[in-house]
């Protein structure tokens, strides 16, 4: 009788929640955003917050704090100082392992515990509306003939790294102009003050719709997911990949990921990975992914660690060539 009840309970998934020494949050949880207000990471964190709240995935309240100083260094250092505290989640991108390579920032990548990556943001080569080039090939030719000014967010960060990879792959030289955010780079492109930028889809879509900038190619292995038309004539899937346009870059993506402080118990990491996996499976998350044109990939545990290691290797080579590595 008892056995049958237990089997029934197991079948209903009731006992799944009681493994040994399970972790549940015992106090309000802090979501640390390693970027400024309104940026991609801020929206990433707040979207997860709203999904968790709506579906009651965590019993404790969640507070979002912004710590974007020093390109996000402020937030990661803050995460590092919360050693052992599994109620402090740090939201960031690959800058978690890239930044310590190029600047003296006060943490090393091993000092934070990776939990999961929930989305990969794409990079698109955008160009000003009235530029003479239409394809990546023409863009490369123009860059060989004269100076092309490319804007991006921050210095020695993802945009500039991508540009350096592009320069090497296509055998060109460009001028890079760092701005505070992708939004600024989008507006400067709209005003025609720069020739191109490498913004994420969401950062430049407003300008694209308004005829103030157009996509040349996307740095992705396959075209973006089909969807409704963004402009009168084009949908996201109509943008060719840079590879099919003859630029030998397989892909370049930015993970949006969640980290925990050092020395947190393994059960806590598992708990949060589980919560985030549930967030990932929710329809609201698919809606967010679609709206921001990111790709939905969930990585945790070993798969995530492997991704970090390979991305770190590739970036280190670029940094080494550019002489950006510190120490």
């Amino acid at each position: 009788m008892t056995m049958r009840l237990a089997a029934l309970a197991a079948a209903l998934g009731l006992t799944a929640a009681t493994p040994v020494a399970a972790f549940t949050p015992s106090k309000p949880v802090e979501f640390v955003v390693t970027a400024g207000a309104g940026g991609g990471t801020d929206i990433f964190a707040r979207t997860i917050q709203s999904i968790i709240q709506k579906n009651n995935l965590v019993a404790q309240p969640i507070v979002v704090t912004l710590k974007g100083g020093g390109s996000g260094a402020e937030g990661f250092v803050y995460g590092k100082t919360g050693s052992g505290d599994a109620h402090r989640l740090v939201f960031g991108t690959s800058n978690q392992w890239l930044l310590p390579m190029v600047a003296k920032v006060g943490w090393s990548r091993q000092e934070l515990t990776p939990v999961a990556a929930l989305a990969f943001d794409e990079f698109i080569l955008w160009t000003r509306q009235d530029a003479p080039w239409k394809t990546a090939g023409e863009f490369v030719a123009a860059a060989k003939a004269g100076t092309i000014k490319v804007g991006g967010s921050q210095s020695k960060d993802l945009d500039e790294t991508l540009l350096k990879i592009l320069e090497k792959a296509a055998g060109i030289k460009t001028t890079y102009i760092p701005f505070k955010s992708g939004g600024e780079a989008a507006v400067q492109l709209a005003g025609g003050h720069i020739d191109a930028n490498t913004n994420n889809p969401a950062e430049n879509v407003g300008q694209w719709k308004g005829g103030q900038g157009r996509p040349v190619c996307v740095f992705s292995a396959a075209r973006l997911a089909a969807g409704p038309k963004v402009t009168d004539t084009m949908a996201w899937s109509d943008i060719p990949t840079c590879k099919e346009q003859g630029i030998p870059i397989e892909e370049y993506k930015m993970p949006r990921a969640v980290y925990l402080p050092p020395n947190v118990p393994a059960e806590a990491v598992a708990f949060w990975a589980d919560v985030l996996e549930k967030v990932f499976a929710s329809p609201e998350w698919q809606e967010y992914i679609g709206r921001t044109s990111q790709s939905a990939t969930f990585l945790k545990g070993d798969a995530f660690a492997k991704f970090i290691a390979s991305d770190e290797d590739r970036s280190r080579k670029v940094f080494e060539e550019q002489g950006w590595l510190v120490k």
Partner: peptide
């Protein structure tokens, strides 16, 4: 004081 936007250094 802090991170320089243009050079990315502290």
């Amino acid at each position: 004081v802090g991170m320089d936007t243009i050079s990315g250094s502290m």
